[in-house]
Measured scan of single mutants.
Amino acid sequence: MATDAALRRLLRLHRTEIAVAVDSAFPLLHALADHDVVPEDKFQETLHLKEKEGCPQAFHALLSWLLTQDSTAILDFWRVLFKDYNLERYGRLQPILDSFPKDVDLSQPRKGRKPPAVPKALVPPPRLPTKRKASEEARAAAPAALTPRGTASPGSQLKAKPPKKPESSAEQQRLPLGNGIQTMSASVQRAVAMSSGDVPGARGAVEGILIQQVFESGGSKKCIQVGGEFYTPSKFEDSGSGKNKARSSSGPKPLVRAKGAQGAAPGGGEARLGQQGSVPAPLALPSDPQLHQKNEDECAVCRDGGELICCDGCPRAFHLACLSPPLREIPSGTWRCSSCLQATVQEVQPRAEEPRPQEPPVETPLPPGLRSAGEEVRGPPGEPLAGMDTTLVYKHLPAPPSAAPLPGLDSSALHPLLCVGPEGQQNLAPGARCGVCGDGTDVLRCTHCAAAFHWRCHFPAGTSRPGTGLRCRSCSGDVTPAPVEGVLAPSPARLAPGPAKDDTASHEPALH
């Protein structure tokens, strides 16, 4: 009773807030009518008042009428009001819900409408889902798969039609296919003929059939049928067999079959498995989609049935006599038709004709302190090069084509190399640097090759510096006499390219 009084008091307290929050009759008014909170006449009256005075006034009048009803109607109103779709449509209802007392429970059932309790003993237990329907569909599909699609060729003596089998029958139906081979029951999904010589313990000319048996419980189990008994694959494991010639990621696949039913060829011909030897223990289905393919039931050349050999690369099948050149017997292992072999060759040939990528240039590290003349020119003028003790990398590039010797140069053309002071002394051009340390401070000019250098860098042994005729380390061993002091540049003949010694390969005349 306390809860009923509290709900009535809360409705009177929030009546105006609810009326202002509800700006549309749908969905709240319609939901109240659906849950029998508002009768039909009051529903029509509220809609009429909404058209006349507006939605807030109409709902305020409806809530005032609701306060005169019993506690069950008020409880049902609060339940409908706080439904998710009403809270989404009328956003101003959320503060009312947040301020609702926590001790007021809106989930209690309506009085007088409590459903009768059902004894637990009368409640049926839930049924577990079964796979009976899938099993029945598999039974119905198996006879259809064994139905012949056409008439065999005159040369083929193997013609068999499976008798119709009602689904209610649980007995196995067997077809006489000759040579002791028996087909599987209607619940078998796949059958492959297997030679009895590969099964340990088999006697006589009995041949087993590799099947997948579907049981009534819905589970499946792969086994071997020899005669009327089934054997699990673990009985046929043979770890010492060295003649297993397995197909790549293979499961067994029928390579020879008669049109209309699988079996042995007439005249004692023995149908073979995809792999010879003992049956392997793992009978998992292969991951290669080509091995799941269903080959055609007629020859791809003459479009006739009979004894066919199936290609492992495509769905086509052929007569042995229709092949070019014809085959006398079934080859062992994987067999592919000429079209598949030709496609494989065409895929391999473009790969062989692809040009080989060019090898990157060989990189040879230079000892610290040495650099090529090109690196000396590329440096920024007026700045010493940083990191001189790091190992430089010199790339061996292809030799350029031989060019004509340089033409003779006048001494005026070499004027930018040297600057003559007032006393006739050779001065260095701006930006000249030593080729060893890279520093341009207090550098000297070689009178023979006009290269800038430090005496301490080229002659670290402490050799005394002569007063005139300074030469760098590369030119100090040259027998050519030094030019007379005061000459602007060496003779043009000295600039012609010539053979250089091994220790002077990195010091070429550089223009500054």
Rank of each mutant, 00 (worst) to 15 (best):
S239E: 07
R132G: 02
T183K: 09
A193Y: 11
H35S: 03
E88S: 04
F215T: 01
Q157Y: 14
R272H: 04
K120N: 13
A202I: 09
E216K: 13
P162C: 14
A142L: 12
G218I: 12
L13S: 01
F230C: 05
L10S: 01
I211M: 04
Q157H: 14
Q225N: 07
Q44G: 02
F230V: 05
A58R: 03
R79G: 03
A144L: 12
V226W: 13
T72W: 02
G178K: 07
E137Q: 00
W78K: 02
R257D: 12
A61V: 03
R272F: 11
A152M: 15
P166L: 09
H60N: 02
A141E: 15
F230I: 04
L32C: 01
P252L: 12
S217L: 05
P252S: 10
D98E: 02
H35I: 02
E207Q: 06
L158G: 14
Q108N: 05
W78Q: 00
G178M: 15
V80C: 00
D76A: 04
G208M: 02
A6L: 15
G260S: 11
L158Q: 08
K114A: 01
M184N: 02
S220F: 03
A25V: 10
V188Q: 07
V192C: 08
P200V: 07
G240Q: 02
I18D: 07
F43P: 05
A145C: 11
S195G: 08
P101L: 03
W78I: 02
G227V: 04
L66R: 01
V104I: 08
G197Q: 04
P163R: 06
I96V: 12
A193V: 02
V199H: 05
F59V: 08
T183F: 03
P176C: 15
G155H: 15
P115Q: 10
P126L: 02
Y85D: 02
K222H: 06
T147A: 03
G91I: 01
K253Q: 15
S135P: 02
V123T: 08
A19R: 03
H48L: 04
P200I: 06
A61Q: 04
S250K: 05
V206S: 06
V118G: 09
S135K: 14
A160R: 10
P200Y: 02
A6Q: 10
G242F: 13
F59T: 02
G180R: 15
A6I: 04
T232V: 11
P166S: 09
G228R: 13
R12L: 04
G197D: 05
A138W: 15
L67F: 01
L29Y: 01
E167R: 03
A258Q: 05
S195K: 08
I96F: 03
F215D: 08
S241A: 05
V199S: 06
L10F: 07
P162Y: 15
P266N: 09
R79C: 03
L158M: 09
R272A: 06
E17N: 00
F26R: 01
E137I: 09
